[in-house]
Nucleic acid binder design. Structure first.
Lengths: 206, 206
DNA sequence: TCGAAAATGATGGATATCCGACACAGCGGG
DNA sequence: CCCGCTGTGTCGGATATCCATCATTTTCGA
């Protein structure tokens, strides 16, 4: 079950059922404490037979764990480049970093999930794991553009700084019902990065 | 297939599939002319296998016809009384007639359907059939409260008058994106009725 | 603490839906 | 007119999901 999202030919029925279960679960998480939610609630909300739930998940904890793993996997796979372009990104005050754009679009498209995990619940350790995934993405970003030169700031410190600041912005944005668009948020984060982080990473400015 | 809505124990899979197909179809009707819509479009939009479509409907026309029949049947079954009350309604300037409230709630809950049928398409004869269903409801309403007394206005005229005026209000409301709530609309229609129609029907005023 | 009710986990048989494929019809272009 | 492409209607076999049921566990109130 852990490789679910990597099976492109998955029967549409499976995908549909899992989507129904996921949405029902997240909806219930918005109304009830996790411990209060029972399987019967989920399957009724999802309009799915209870035995079907067990065909996909072992129990409620497995569902939660599966959702978190799936989502963090997607989060960690966000591309650094625009979808229609192969050239490297050059930092620019008027154009959002593509990674940030993908990030906020991803978050917006899964807002209920992230709001529940980071807010209402919150899921144990999820925020930490998410921060780590973002940190890892930044690390891969830096590795792709720096081979030998010495950073202006110790790498570990830089990664901690950027991942936590990014998480802070994200959490606030979600809590405030995403009143700014993903494009706006990614542009602001790009500008904040241009104040120092990009330079610390050794990226040339536009 | 014609008795679909009268089968309370219908397998949830069937209900779910039909709902998916219905929503996909209506969504496409909002974007394309009816003649341009092909079965393949519908099943792709619904994320349902094409053979599944044929398990439920003979063709596109059968789908449309079925939707119209289902909806008009529901429209014609709207209750005259509030859901929590068995006593007769006494006309009152501050309380909406329960029938009107049910009517507008029903319309609001199925706004996409009605907007497509009465606006974007429009479906041949649908408006006339809908008017007839509403007219029939008014007729049943009058029959329930009048047995022997003579109406102030010929019955046929009264029914034509009220059904067409109701339809006019409904069409305008849907076209204007339902900016007023169902409660508001039903209260206004009640007040309009109090200006004369209820009296013509022989109802005592509050 | 006990008992009843509710929830769970599992199972067997039925069925709705899936996929892939085929024959056919319709359409547009050479 | 022929050909290729697309959509349709149909079909057989596979499978995901359904329902009802049962045994067990958990929960809750007296």
């Amino acid at each position: 079950m852990a490789d679910r999202q990597t099976q492109p030919s998955l029967d549409r029925r499976i995908r549909r059922t899992q989507q129904l279960i996921t949405e029902a679960f997240l909806s219930l998480c918005q109304e009830k404490d996790y411990e209060e939610i029972i399987i019967k609630d989920i399957t009724e909300q999802a309009n799915v037979n209870r035995s079907t739930f067990y065909a996909h998940y072992q129990d409620k904890d497995d569902l939660l764990s599966s959702l978190m793993n799936d989502m963090l996997s997607k989060l960690g796979s966000l591309p650094f480049l625009p979808q229609d372009q192969a050239s490297a990104y050059v930092p620019d005050n008027e154009k959002p970093d593509p990674y940030f754009l993908h990030l906020f679009e991803h978050l917006a498209g899964n807002a209920v999930f992230y709001r529940v995990m980071l807010g209402r619940m919150p899921a144990p350790g999820f925020a930490d794991r998410m921060t780590e995934v973002i940190r890892e993405s930044f690390y891969r970003r830096i590795s792709a553009i720096r081979n030998d030169q010495k950073l202006l700031i110790p790498l570990e410190l830089l990664l901690d700084y950027t991942s936590h600041s990014t998480m802070g912005i994200i959490t606030k944005w979600l809590a405030q019902q995403m009143i700014y668009s993903p494009h706006h948020m990614s542009l602001q984060l790009t500008r904040l990065s241009l104040l120092g982080v990009y330079r610390a990473m050794g990226m040339e400015e536009h």
